[in-house]
Design a protein around this nucleic acid. Structure first.
Lengths: 221, 221
DNA sequence: ACCTGAACACCGTTCAAGT
DNA sequence: ACCTGAACACCGTTCAAGT
């Protein structure tokens, strides 16, 4: 077969169709062979544009994570944290089938490090000690990843007869799979509680060691 | 080959060796063929004791999750919640390679429903309205699953040169992979903040509608 | 009842051969 | 430079055949 004047494939097109398969049929449905078929090409051809399947998944993830907003730390840290957390969760929820990969894959890529740097910088500029900035970034990530990964509502069978007398407190649990807004509400509840709890910590730190630049917030607002 | 007087295999032994492989070599390293080899048997033999690989993973998960303590709601709900959250996280951290499956698999099994029922019952008995009990269970699960799934410390490259001038706020991030206690500390910080935040919600609910049994805590302590 | 070989329909990845 | 057929070393699962 002659080489076409313009290549049949590009990394972008491979990544785009790959994400389409994941969104439509699930993470396990993405195979190099199936992806090639969708692109009217043989599996081996993909390796001219992508080093391997794992790298392709990282490329797809990079695209999805580009929607995360880490830029809102200018006014105050609770606002920056909330904007980050909500846009992060929205990005994951937009592609739920990709979440297991997104959550487990370490964030070694340039863009991931840039986002981490922005969040950390935003918190430190707001007066948080380095160590707290790290822990707050981690805590927030846990909440986001957990809420995207472990849909609480979908975890329960929709068949009412499953529960009967054996699980008296779950007598309405069969309704949960229809009420997926319970996941969004739970996330907001947890995020509010986390931010409120952190505000308290912030006040305590500022009051305890007002002069010690290494251990306390430097510019409390 | 003659049928032995006692079967070579049992579901328990298959599950135990399966978990050993996962712990030692990772979730992707567990294949029915590799598992069979370890058990000195052919892959097809496993299907006399286990319906398929997915069911086997659920059996293994059930075993691991049996370590979760949902019994500590007798004195007060914050204690019950903390005991649940900590034992849940400990169970996941004991088998980190299994976490992606544990987190994604819906909790349809008998024991999982029993645990959910206990947590929900503990919260409702403490005076939380049904809807809040659900959201608190969900929020706590997010935190636990997120912290077990997305190790913050391990997410950063250990090579200091990666960061240099490009990520000024991450100048000490290369030290994180050695400091995995940052994940435990971050989890405790988030758990404290969550419980404190919820205490506040509890007080607000009790004060707002002291007579309304449907919408407010019934036995505030 | 339980183990087996062989088969089926898949995988990811490599590589010499084509144009 | 880029696509391909063929191959290698794997998968999960089924099933008739053995004892």
């Amino acid at each position: 077969m002659p080489r076409p004047s313009r290549p049949l494939l590009t990394t972008e097109r491979i990544a785009r169709v790959g994400l389409e398969i994941i969104d439509a049929e699930g993470l396990e449905a993405l195979s190099m062979r199936r992806l090639a078929e969708r692109l009217d090409v043989r599996a081996a051809s993909l390796y001219n544009h992508v080093p391997n399947k794992d790298d392709l998944l990282h490329t797809i993830s990079d695209e999805v994570m580009a929607q995360v907003d880490v830029s809102d730390f200018e006014s105050d840290w609770p606002t920056g944290l909330r904007t980050w957390a909500r846009s992060y969760r929205a990005a994951l929820r937009a592609h739920p089938n990709l979440v297991p990969f997104l959550a487990s894959g370490p964030a070694h890529r340039e863009n991931a490090l840039r986002r981490a740097d922005r969040v950390h910088g935003g918190l430190v500029r707001a007066g948080w000690p380095q160590r707290y900035a790290t822990m707050i970034g981690a805590s927030t990530k846990y909440l986001v990843v957990g809420s995207a990964m472990a849909s609480f509502a979908e975890g329960f069978p929709a068949d009412a007869s499953v529960y009967d007398e054996r699980f008296p407190h779950l007598d309405r649990a069969h309704l949960l799979p229809q009420h997926t807004e319970i996941d969004a509400d739970s996330f907001e509840l947890a995020l509010s509680a986390l931010v409120d709890g952190l505000r308290e910590v912030y006040r305590t730190l500022a009051a305890a060691t007002p002069e010690d630049e290494a251990a306390a917030p430097q510019h409390p607002r």
